[in-house]
């Protein structure tokens, strides 16, 4: 990244749930127009950190700035410039996708054409379907569509590809890259390292509420190799995932 203006800055972030210390002094910056990955094992504190930045949770201490706005004092202004996909979220019951997008347009106070939003995530065919009638991958795509309604400066995607088939994942990578190419900063969490390596400009590894590494995927790999690491087994020129993709093709699955 040549442009290094920081759009999110988190310093000494601490979050306690009662006695439990979920986040213990996180500090990092996200640069404008990059795809930033938060990686780490289950329970590391990724979702907690994201939701604090998204102004959905109170922090115990520390400072968080989003595009220069403080989460403590400018939560409402922040909400207007971010798009949020939650790790777990539901949508209003009994409404179809077009009606849901209409609702979100109202909630964000913007005018959008629902069909155009659906086209961005290739769900035009499902315009009249209810959210709960969608497949897992379609649900994720729809969730992403709702994050784009207010043309946000930053979108937060919490495990958007969990549970998707290999090509659905790859197609989602294309969508996420496209969002970034349109000038939006993306913060994403994932448990797939191939995904992080392909998609993210920089990644932070979080463990037990602390950042244990933060750099570009390339640099982190180089560091590891430089330390003398070697893979135990010689890798074949292809793996089972390549077989899957090869057998089933690259199209969106409905």
């Amino acid at each position: 990244m040549t442009n290094k203006r920081s759009i999110i800055s988190v310093s000494n972030l601490v979050k306690h749930y009662g006695e439990f210390k979920a986040v213990q002094g996180l500090s990092f910056e996200v640069y404008e127009n990059e795809i930033f990955g938060l990686l780490g094992p289950n329970g590391a504190g990724k979702t907690t950190t994201l939701e604090i930045i998204e102004t959905l949770r109170d922090k115990t201490s520390g400072e968080v700035l989003v595009d220069g706005l403080n989460v403590d004092t400018d939560a409402n202004a922040i909400k207007q410039i971010i798009g949020v996909q939650l790790q777990a979220a539901g949508y209003y019951p009994n409404l179809n996708l077009v009606e849901l997008l209409d609702l979100f347009a109202g909630l964000y106070g913007v005018n959008v054409t629902p069909m155009e939003m659906l086209a961005k995530v290739n769900l035009q065919d499902k315009a009249k379907a209810k959210y709960k009638e969608l497949s897992g991958g379609q649900k994720q795509r729809f969730s992403i569509a709702t994050t784009l309604i207010n043309s946000p400066k930053i979108v937060f995607l919490d495990e958007p590809t969990t549970g998707l088939d290999p090509q659905a994942r790859r197609n989602l990578w294309d969508l996420i890259s496209e969002i970034r190419n349109n000038g939006t900063t993306v913060v994403i969490t994932t448990h797939y390292m191939d995904e992080a390596e392909q998609l993210c400009d920089r990644v932070a590894f979080v463990e037990a509420g602390k950042i244990i590494a933060l750099d570009t995927p390339d640099q982190l790999i180089d560091n590891l190799i430089a330390s003398g690491f070697e893979r135990k087994k010689e890798v074949k020129a292809a793996n089972l995932e390549d077989v899957f993709i090869n057998l089933t093709g690259k199209e969106w699955r409905e």
Partner: peptide, 20 residues
């Protein structure tokens, strides 16, 4: 029913991510 289900199914949480 509606407020319970909006809360339980995290619909309200998603709403809170908007400026509403």
């Amino acid at each position: 029913f509606i407020f319970f289900s909006l809360r339980q199914n995290l619909v309200i949480k998603r709403f809170f991510a908007t400026p509403v």
